[in-house]
Design a binder for these strands. Sequence first.
DNA 1: ATTCGATCAGATCGCCCTTGTTCATCGACA
DNA 2: TGTCGATGAACAAGGGCGATCTGATCGAAT
Lengths: 94, 94
Amino acid sequence: MNKGDLIESVASQLNESKAHATKIVDAVLEGISQGVQRDGKVTITGFGSFERKERAARTGINPATRQPIEIKASRTINFRPSQSLKESLNEATV
Amino acid sequence: MNKGDLIESVASQLNESKAHATKIVDAVLEGISQGVQRDGKVTITGFGSFERKERAARTGINPATRQPIEIKASRTINFRPSQSLKESLNEATV
DNA sequence: ATTCGATCAGATCGCCCTTGTTCATCGACA
DNA sequence: TGTCGATGAACAAGGGCGATCTGATCGAAT
C-alpha cells in the first residue's frame, strides 16, 4: 500500500475528493513529523506512539567490504503500536 | 505531544474546525491501520513506511518472578522513517 | 522522466520484550 | 467544560532476536 492508496482510503472514509484527501494526509503526516521534531515524542491513544530515539555510536561492519566501521551516533524514529493496534494485528489475517 | 495537539496542528494547517480535524486524524490513522493489516506494508513516500513484522518465539524472562518464560511468536509494526524525515530530525534541535 | 525507496550482503551490538501493578494523564462523552 | 473511564508509561532483569551499517541497482511511484 502506498500513499495513493492511503489517500483513497481517507477520501472514501471522509467522503472527500482525492485532492482534498491529499492535503489532509499531508497535513497529518506533517503534524506528526513536526510533533516528533519539537517534542521528541508523539503519543496517539489507541494507535501508537512515535518517539525520537538517539542511537549511540557503535562498531558495525560494512557489508560490502566486510570491514569493521565505526557507526557514529544518529537519531531515528521509533514507533510502538498501542495495545489496541497489536490486538487488531493479531486478530486479522491470523 | 498527544492526540489533541496533533488534531490542533492539523486543524491549523487545514484551517478546519477541531471537530473535523478529529475525524480527519482518525480517518488517516484508520487508513494506515487497515493498510497495514491488509497489505502488511504501508509505504508513504517522503515520510516513512509501516511494516507488519512477525516476531519469532523466543525465551524471555518474567521480570516479576525472574523466571524464564517462553514468549510465543507475535506480530508488531515496524516503522522506518524515510531519508527526508531523518534529515529533518538531524536538522532540528541539533 | 526523475526521484525515491527497497533490496541484499554479513556480522556485531543494541535494545526490545516479557509481567503486573500503580498512577497519572488523556480522551471521549454528555 | 467537567468528569469518568480507559490507556499508556514506568520499572525490574536478562536473554536472544533483529536492527543497522554501505551502496549500487532496479523498480516503483510521483
